[in-house]
């Protein structure tokens, strides 16, 4: 008798629930474009937000909805973008690859300290204590917040505490741009070869006391490339697109603060820039 009660109760219960779910599935079914899942699978699932959407799935929805083209995703490989474009029958819409560039070159071998900072080993924390320990208020603090925040292992700190960006791994997601308390990172197209690796707004000797590779605002680069470079607030500002970029513009820079990206991840300094003599921690 007991077994009958158990069987019928459980049987009835499960049948009832199955029926309920069946009905619910009928009335509450939400149509989702099956292509969204497929496109989502083809995306890198990095959820980095470089495309301007919250994550890969919202981007896939936008792709299927025809709002954007696959080229917006800078993380996926060329083949990945191609396969999405073929699957959806749309153009590739390639965007030029961007990389994060650091506007500072003052490692601890060349930049002086005004104070010793003791505390949380992060740039964000150090920047709160009167701007960190470096003499140069604008300079890189070197605790590697950008290295930690990078999801793609593209940033590594060199032995002088300056982040190096591996352009082949950088996806231009912008995480390092957001995390840097000194706003030193910016996303630049790879074709922007000319670059000012300094943000110090002082000029002349005042700069050299703080950093050997700082921009002294002598203006020689602006004279050598008059259309392209303009001096603003004691810093050269490069107006990309206003003229052809030539490596000659950096030749007369005395401190080597304006540089030329000869390769994607490696820059060269001008011929006349003085060699950094003092090497090692101070």
């Amino acid at each position: 008798m007991n077994i009958l009660i158990a069987l019928s109760f459980l049987g009835g219960l499960t049948l009832l629930l199955a029926f309920l779910i069946f009905i619910a599935n009928r009335f509450l079914y939400v149509y989702e474009d099956p292509r969204i899942d497929k496109v989502n699978e083809l995306l890198p699932q990095a959820n980095c937000g470089a495309c301007g959407y919250p994550g890969c799935r919202p981007f896939a929805e936008a792709l299927v909805g025809g709002e954007v083209l696959p080229g917006k995703c800078t993380v996926s490989s060329e083949e990945g973008r191609m396969s999405i474009a073929q699957y959806l029958g749309v153009g590739l819409g390639n965007e030029e690859k961007k990389v994060a560039r650091l506007a500072c070159a003052g490692g601890k071998n060349v930049a002086t300290k005004k104070a010793n900072y003791w505390g949380l080993e992060t740039c964000q924390a150090a920047a709160l204590v009167s701007g960190g320990g470096k003499s140069c208020f604008w300079g890189c603090l070197g605790f590697g917040d950008c290295e930690r925040v990078c999801d793609f292992d593209a940033i590594s700190m060199d032995r002088f505490g300056i982040p190096l960006v591996d352009a082949s791994k950088c996806t231009a997601c912008g995480d390092c741009v957001d995390v840097c308390p000194k706003d030193l990172f910016s996303l630049q197209p790879l074709s922007n070869r000319l670059w000012v690796a300094c943000k110090n707004l002082e000029k002349g000797e005042a700069v050299l006391e703080e950093c050997e590779v700082g921009c002294t605002a002598c203006g020689k680069c602006a004279m050598d490339a008059p259309q392209l470079i303009e001096m603003k607030n004691n810093l050269p500002v490069i107006e990309y697109g206003k003229g052809p970029q030539k490596p000659e513009a950096i030749d007369r820079c005395p401190t080597g603060s304006i540089v030329w990206w000869a390769e994607d991840s490696q820059f060269v300094k001008g011929k006349e820039s003085k060699k950094v003599i003092r090497v090692g921690e101070r």
Binding site: N2, I5, A6, F9, L10, L13, T14, L17, A18, L20, I21, A24
Partner: peptide, 21 residues
């Protein structure tokens, strides 16, 4: 129905399907 020994298994079934709903 005087069958409290079915408690555990029914709870599991009902909770799972209700959450599904």
């Amino acid at each position: 129905i005087n069958a409290p020994y079915l408690q555990l298994i029914s709870y599991i079934v009902v909770i799972a399907s209700t959450v599904q709903l």
